[in-house]
Simulated assay, not measured.
Amino acid sequence: MKKWLIASTLICTSSLAFAHGCPGEMKKIDSALLATQLTPQNMSKVKDLRAKGEDLHKAGKHTESMAALAEAKKIIGIQ
């Protein structure tokens, strides 16, 4: 019982931390867009992925949001 309680606490805590990571990732992308020169095609992709990430975040789909934001960051070349 004690192990189950610890495991469920860790899962809940990590889920909350992950859910709040989306806005931070969006801020990183926004900052990088101001300082980075991309081709018009890549700029469009990044903006679309960033918007998709925000929409998914608002819908409560944080895993999918983080995946879209990670793809946008990869195109920009940030971590």
Rank of each mutant, 00 (worst) to 15 (best):
M1I: 07
M1V: 13
K2C: 07
K3F: 14
K3A: 15
W4Q: 13
L5E: 15
L5D: 15
L5W: 12
I6G: 09
I6M: 15
S8C: 14
T9K: 14
T9N: 14
I11F: 11
S15F: 06
H20G: 04
G21E: 10
G21R: 06
C22N: 03
C22G: 05
C22I: 07
P23T: 12
E25F: 03
M26R: 11
K27W: 06
K28G: 09
I29V: 12
I29D: 02
S31F: 12
L34M: 14
L34A: 12
L34H: 09
A35Y: 07
Q37Y: 02
T39D: 04
T39I: 01
P40D: 13
Q41W: 00
Q41R: 05
N42Y: 01
N42W: 00
S44L: 09
K45T: 08
K45L: 09
K47P: 02
K47C: 04
K47D: 08
K47R: 13
K47L: 13
K47N: 09
D48K: 13
L49K: 04
A51Y: 07
A51N: 15
A51K: 12
K52S: 10
K52M: 08
G53E: 01
G53L: 03
G53D: 03
E54L: 10
D55T: 14
D55S: 12
L56M: 09
L56W: 01
K58N: 05
K58S: 11
K58L: 10
A59G: 01
A59T: 02
K61V: 01
K61C: 01
H62F: 05
T63F: 02
M66W: 01
M66H: 08
L69H: 03
E71Q: 14
A72P: 00
A72H: 00
A72Y: 02
K73F: 02
K74R: 11
K74A: 11
K74T: 07
I76N: 00
G77Y: 08
G77Q: 05
I78A: 06
Q79C: 10
Q79F: 08
